[in-house]
Design a protein around this nucleic acid. Sequence first.
DNA 1: GCATGCTAGTTTGTCCGACAATCGGATAGA
DNA 2: TCTATCCGATTGTCGGACAAACTAGCATGC
Lengths: 252, 252
Amino acid sequence: MNDAKALFRPLEQAPAYKRLCQAIEDEIMAGRLNPGDQLPTETALAEAFQLNRSTVREGIRLLEQSGLVERIAGRRLAVARPSTTDLGKRLGQAMVLHAVTFQELWQTIAALEPAAAAHAAEARRPADLEALEENLAASEAAADDPLRLSELDVAFHAIVAEATHNRALLLARAAVAQLFYPAFAVVVTRLDTASARLLTAHREIAKAIARQNAAEARQWMERHIADFRRGYCKAGLDPEASIATLMEMNKA
Amino acid sequence: MNDAKALFRPLEQAPAYKRLCQAIEDEIMAGRLNPGDQLPTETALAEAFQLNRSTVREGIRLLEQSGLVERIAGRRLAVARPSTTDLGKRLGQAMVLHAVTFQELWQTIAALEPAAAAHAAEARRPADLEALEENLAASEAAADDPLRLSELDVAFHAIVAEATHNRALLLARAAVAQLFYPAFAVVVTRLDTASARLLTAHREIAKAIARQNAAEARQWMERHIADFRRGYCKAGLDPEASIATLMEMNKA
DNA sequence: GCATGCTAGTTTGTCCGACAATCGGATAGA
DNA sequence: TCTATCCGATTGTCGGACAAACTAGCATGC
């Protein structure tokens, strides 16, 4: 009798609002609806799908939340591309709820950032270099302001990632970075030697990227990330603790 | 006159259903609502927030789609943790819509998988080794069935990733992997030498993980991933083409 | 004692109809 | 040409309604 679960599938048809969402999602994924295209009005959709407007609206909410659809300025539904930051936020939430530890984040960042630096060195464009320079200048000016410096640190790594012009890499690291670097603000505040080391590393990484020296960029980034971990432990923080606790310290 | 946009912020209060979603989201993020907790019924929520049930429902749809809330078996709303696979799917969608190329995916996978293999060697548990063994056996049996082998390939890498017991890494790679490996099915179908090379690599990786030899696991995985790229080019596919086109070939 | 069947109350999914606010566009006025 | 005004269309929100499906409790049968 126990194999009943294995034998039979759930066998339930999803509620109408979900099916509507799926139907429109399919159209988008199949390329029959493209980003920018306007969707029919709610009443029109209701008529087309033979559903009530309330039901249609529920379906639209699902699409809205998945970022596949947006309300353009005024108010007309249009197909959209899910934004990187939006997805990053959602991934970040998930990690907090899964009680991910600093250690886990660090391992992931340690895999991604050196690769990002190397590819940035290969694919960077003039605009990227300018952004890096600007960030470095601002960082040097903010050497005494841990909070501001921490913000600029997040920005620096984001610029490097963007310089790869690799959207997959960008998306993958966005989530982790969003949690990792802010968590690190606490360290910068506690260790006064951290700022100087951070600045040196950033400068060298930027230099290597400017010179298109991928190997060097990767190497400096590796050291930089290793430094992060050392600083974290030196600051008396537990790598095995959930980052959720860190985020709270940050607020205080 | 042009600075009007700079001077003033949007100044609009979000619709009620969005604010409701945000309110509940905040409760969850603050830990006042924990995964597994049941939410009040729709009518109760409507009363609490002084909103109509229809409006409450729209808010719930947003929460539902972000995975923070689920309908338990029967039908009662409960707080949930966004599932890895769910987020992976969403990220995958985003990448398709952003017309991400194979090259971009490959660079990302190449950064993540070797790290995953190395950490898996350190953190693997008996159950992980069993899963690997089982997968290897099935793969050897399916050496002549490209489609089945491709499925098992996806599974193999997923098992390795899970053996790291690093949820951040798991989440970050889930999205990329979900697109990458299926896209690779085409290659396995076209190159008959691919299956054998794939099997050898898998076996060596599994062996290294079993022996807890992180360096070797990383090295084999690196080669394996490099092989992927070579195979892809050999199969006459364009690394700069959007993976969306690949997915279509896969269906056919 | 445990499995089954029945009943009543809840809760959800869906529908209908309604209305204020606002947006888009057309039209009239300076 | 620019502004003001009006009108229809669309969205956000509301109230109420009902069938289907679920929960829980109780009765029944073995």
